[in-house]
Computed example of a mutant assay.
Amino acid sequence: MEIVKENRNISASPHVRDKMTTDKIMYIVFAALLPAMVFGVYNFGVHALLVVIVTTASAVLWEALIEKLLHKPITIKDGSAAVTGLLLALNLPPMIPLWIGILGSAFAIIVVKQLFGGLGQNFMNPALGARCFLLLSFTGPMTYFIYDGVTGATPLAELKAGQTVDTMSMLIGTIRGTIGETSVIAIMIGAIILLLTGVIDLRIPGTYIVTFVIFVTLFGGHGFDPQYITAHLCGGGLMLGAWFMATDYVTSPITKKGQYVYGACLGILTGLFRLFGGSAEGVSYAIIISNLLVPLIEKVTLPKPFGKGGEK
């Protein structure tokens, strides 16, 4: 009798099939970021558009180059590099020198993503890792904000200094800030796209926002002041971070309980940085620190199996 040997991939059940591929998810996320990008370009002008184009394109080129040098399959068609580049661009000031965007995309793709194994292996969000790298390396350009020809502090910094802010302008987005963080309306249009297509759900962003509101109410010194809370929610990168970066599949927990814990950590850390830190912002650092806590969160919240050695 002839024995036929076949190579088979054996993995643990359950075996789930889903029409939602990695490529499709990335294209949907990219499309969902377009409202914030379009408003940012409209709000800040031609240079903001150049920052978006150069940073996004360079991220794709860096990915193709490093994969070629490492003799790995070229994966730029999956859209992940383009999403990383666009997210980084939306987290940059509108008048940032273009070479800084190129350097940031190199750090995001080469250091944070590819040196740790590529898509699915990075331990923190590449775009936020690059933003924090740029903040530490080029603090001046990264904190230079201009709107309508006038430079100055962002509304969030003014709020921290005890000044009054226009919450309606913060909601619409006609304020100083990074290219993609100013308009809550544009961000929420993208968030709705992600929710309706099933790319994300409410567990992480919902827990994040609710926890942050509770923290600000308890420790902000204003009690439950709707205007003060709204200003904090609309200011800085909280909404962009909550819906587009905290929900990153690779760097967020896979367990449902873990996602609630993760969201709570994000809310508490953001509140700590904003209210008690030296900077008015804190979303980027809160998300990165929470990314590092994900393995521990998953270990604690992983469901125990039934049967021998498990729950009975």
Score class of each variant (00 low, 15 high):
residue 46 V to D: 12
residue 295 P to G: 10
residue 220 G to Y: 03
residue 282 G to S: 04
residue 64 A to F: 10
residue 244 F to N: 04
residue 261 V to R: 04
residue 306 F to N: 14
residue 89 A to Y: 09
residue 19 K to M: 13
residue 286 A to G: 07
residue 223 G to I: 06
residue 13 S to K: 13
residue 33 L to P: 01
residue 90 L to V: 00
residue 1 M to G: 13
residue 167 T to S: 12
residue 37 M to I: 07
residue 32 A to P: 01
residue 136 L to I: 14
residue 73 P to C: 10
residue 192 I to N: 06
residue 115 L to Y: 04
residue 206 G to S: 00
residue 196 L to D: 07
residue 227 Q to G: 09
residue 147 Y to M: 02
residue 52 V to G: 06
residue 61 L to N: 02
residue 104 G to W: 03
residue 133 F to E: 01
residue 60 V to D: 02
residue 205 P to W: 07
residue 250 V to A: 11
residue 128 L to C: 06
residue 277 G to M: 05
residue 145 F to G: 00
residue 259 Q to P: 11
residue 21 T to D: 05
residue 188 M to V: 13
residue 169 S to W: 00
residue 182 T to N: 10
residue 194 L to V: 00
residue 105 S to H: 03
residue 83 V to M: 04
residue 234 C to D: 04
residue 28 I to V: 12
residue 80 S to V: 05
residue 152 G to T: 06
residue 141 P to D: 06
residue 202 L to Y: 14
residue 77 K to N: 15
residue 181 E to Y: 03
residue 8 R to K: 13
residue 197 T to M: 05
residue 36 A to T: 01
residue 72 K to D: 11
residue 57 A to E: 03
residue 51 V to M: 08
residue 98 L to R: 01
residue 94 P to A: 14
residue 312 K to I: 12
residue 2 E to C: 09
residue 1 M to P: 05
residue 290 S to D: 10
residue 40 G to P: 02
residue 253 P to N: 05
residue 181 E to D: 07
residue 126 P to K: 02
residue 144 Y to K: 10
residue 172 I to Y: 04
residue 242 A to M: 08
residue 188 M to H: 01
residue 301 T to Q: 06
residue 143 T to P: 03
residue 95 M to D: 14
residue 105 S to L: 06
residue 91 N to G: 13
residue 245 M to K: 03
residue 256 K to E: 13
residue 84 T to S: 09
residue 191 A to P: 04
residue 233 L to R: 03
residue 257 K to T: 13
residue 215 F to P: 04
residue 25 I to N: 07
residue 200 I to Q: 04
residue 28 I to N: 01
residue 112 V to A: 12
residue 2 E to F: 15
residue 169 S to M: 15
residue 239 M to H: 01
residue 189 I to L: 15
residue 59 A to T: 06
residue 172 I to T: 04
residue 258 G to V: 00
residue 186 A to Q: 09
residue 231 A to E: 05
residue 104 G to H: 05
residue 103 L to K: 01
residue 151 T to M: 14
residue 102 I to W: 00
residue 65 L to C: 09
residue 80 S to I: 00
residue 86 L to K: 02
residue 309 G to C: 11
residue 312 K to A: 11
residue 101 G to Q: 01
